[in-house]
Amino acid sequence: MALLDHVTLLLNMMRIRRMEEVCAELYTQEKIRGFLHLYIGEEAVAAGVLSLMRPQDNVMATYREHGHALLKGVSAKQILAEMFGKVEGCSHGRGGSMHLFSSVNRFFGGNAIVASGIPQAAGLALAAKRLKEDRHTVCFFGEGAMAEGAFHETMNMAELWKIPLLFCCENNLYAMGTALKRSQSQMDLVKKANAYNVTANSVDGMNIIEVIEKTQIALDFIKREQRPYFLEFKTYRFRPHSMFDPELYRNKEEVMNWKEKCPILTFKGHLLQKNMISELQIQELTLKVEKEIQEAIIFAEQGTWEPIEDLEKHVYENDL
């Protein structure tokens, strides 16, 4: 399997980070409206797992999915245009921040009902297996989703029916304001998966190399055994849950402590220390990212509004 080189891995995390920062700015300028959930702090998970995804692989994500969409091949232009509500957006302005879709990139959303995408991902994986297609199917969700029935029902059926699905739990410790310890009687998430006989592993989600190594093991297992696998990525979101969150449920010290583990800073440090990258190269990467994102903003800004006459399009394939 083609693994991205270290510089590209760093670049991809920087792309997500910068795009998210810009989204926050555009939100305060009211260019982006609605709910906006940022992925800042969790980049190593998406960048690591998606470095192993090929164009034909299926990815299902949540409402905190900008980064996943970007690394699955949806352009920053299309993503920002979508958040602006423009017809050039990846969902033609019908979806918004929480509903990014791209069928050509096999990116299936963008689901804003917690845990709702999980059984659908199992269905995609089942289809790929039955149709003998060479595809991985990966499903991202937060630890909060693990309290939902849809999660438990799917874990059970995935193992029962030998569905080759990779469950990726992004455990950032909080579901909105509810800490894991206040929502789960069993806080060891690997044990939860094991309860369904699903093989599982826990990963330092702030360390992209570990993310990649353990994801590769999981994918190999799934391919060999044609069964599901569960990965818990221990991570942290540095920003509020959404733009409306006053963060009453955690203290600044905790956030500061986690920020020291920033997946981008630590990976940069690691690469510099090992002479795998130079300061100059990092500057070049920064400029490259800035260019991509600035072009995306211009693209989104220059995008057009879908005519209101088209409002009732896309409800059915053929207009009734």
């Binding site: 659908q120 995609l124 149709l131 799917t154 059970n156 029916w161």
Partner: peptide, 23 residues
């Protein structure tokens, strides 16, 4: 002919995914 466990949300969702996936 798949006998499903008592999981209406789950197997309906799996049906949706399978339909999106070409079955």
């Amino acid at each position: 002919i798949m006998d499903a466990p008592l999981s209406e949300v789950g197997f309906t969702g799996i049906g949706i995914g399978a339909a999106m996936g070409g079955l």
